[in-house]
Nucleic acid binder design. Sequence first.
DNA 1: TTAAACCTACCGATTACTCGGTAATTTTAA
DNA 2: TTAAAATTACCGAGTAATCGGTAGGTTTAA
Lengths: 224, 224
Amino acid sequence: MEGGEKRRTEETMAEFFESNTGQDEKRRRRSRKGEARRAEILSAAMRRFAEDGYQNAAIGDVARDVGLSLPGLLHHFPTKVDLLLAILDKRDLESESFIGPYRSDLRGLLKGMVGVFRRNSEMIEVIRTFAILNAESLMKDHPAKAWFLDRATQLQNDIAATFERAVADGSIDGKIDGRAMAAELIAVMDGLQMLWLRDPTRFDMVGGLEAYISRLLVSLGLEG
Amino acid sequence: MEGGEKRRTEETMAEFFESNTGQDEKRRRRSRKGEARRAEILSAAMRRFAEDGYQNAAIGDVARDVGLSLPGLLHHFPTKVDLLLAILDKRDLESESFIGPYRSDLRGLLKGMVGVFRRNSEMIEVIRTFAILNAESLMKDHPAKAWFLDRATQLQNDIAATFERAVADGSIDGKIDGRAMAAELIAVMDGLQMLWLRDPTRFDMVGGLEAYISRLLVSLGLEG
DNA sequence: TTAAACCTACCGATTACTCGGTAATTTTAA
DNA sequence: TTAAAATTACCGAGTAATCGGTAGGTTTAA
């Protein structure tokens, strides 16, 4: 859990897939066709994981989805866990810009979160995959457990820091517990996602967050 | 999804376990020993489900936990799904009194929820089982999907009704959307449970709900 | 005495993964 | 430019393990 674990770029991802016992950093050859295949596989795997979860999904089905044999798929991702980690890794890159732009002021952060939720609600497949994996990762020895814990911890730290900055510059009440507020925000977002997963057609996830945030802003004295 | 599905009592639960093709309601013979075993099995299964989820847990392990062979366990619960449904059923009976006593006024309901959360936090095994199953039930074709959907729907209805009663008698603002507020409450509770499951030692689930509820009461004008 | 409470032995399906090979593609060198 | 060399991209046919469930019997308890 040491903060190490450097972010892998598309470039160095190849090495990651081999057992990597030594310090050999020999460059890997990649064909254009192979890259395309890997992208297909990742996308198909996400669809499968979104339906059945990671543990219950069969990589043989993923292989068939992209017109490959099972060994054919395993050529690109040697184990099922590698496939999962590749998906998580890709998300890591994309969500770099989650908090970044809004890190400054609390009001902007909270409004920004609604924006992210709205944007996400238009990428249903992706968000569904990660919501399912998020829930599934609560189980013992789940291979994505550390990833989701790290992610939640870092998110909480970032949000808490913004709250504490707001306390420091006097824009909100000094008695407010930044870490607790951050936890509550994460809880609300995860909880709303669960409700939405249970009934995607009827439940208005974005509206739910919007209502919560705007009431929160009033109660913090930042609006209204 | 038709509201049918009558609640089963301990008495009639036996019949439920057989394939029940006909309308034979012949009384079953039950030994004291058998009842004890079934209780043991249920408890052991909950522990297993709490760790690995339903799909990934092996009923063979449950059998070994209570000193039985697998067919020995299957004598009491003919299929794995039967075992799951028996657990859910038991919970149904126990949580009959969840909302009941608090159904009357909104302030009492919200305060009561904190109390329930506090009581739950002392039954970690049970709450962990249901939180894991709740999350897992989001997956496609999960056998507990309907149960958790029904439960959430009914809970939302009950809470929403209390909100609307509060609107009707003028104790809270008339612009408040009861159903949306109910959804938010459920989301907060589920989300807090997820955070707690991810890190049971550090995260204060009860305190988190308490903080949310008390801010909500103020913002509704019911307190402070 | 009669049904419940078990057990041993087995089965069929599924699943992640391996082995040993062939075809396709890319890089390198003449 | 082109052909050989190197490596990737696959596939068919396994394999070992797991798991839910069955068949058919014996023992135990009401």
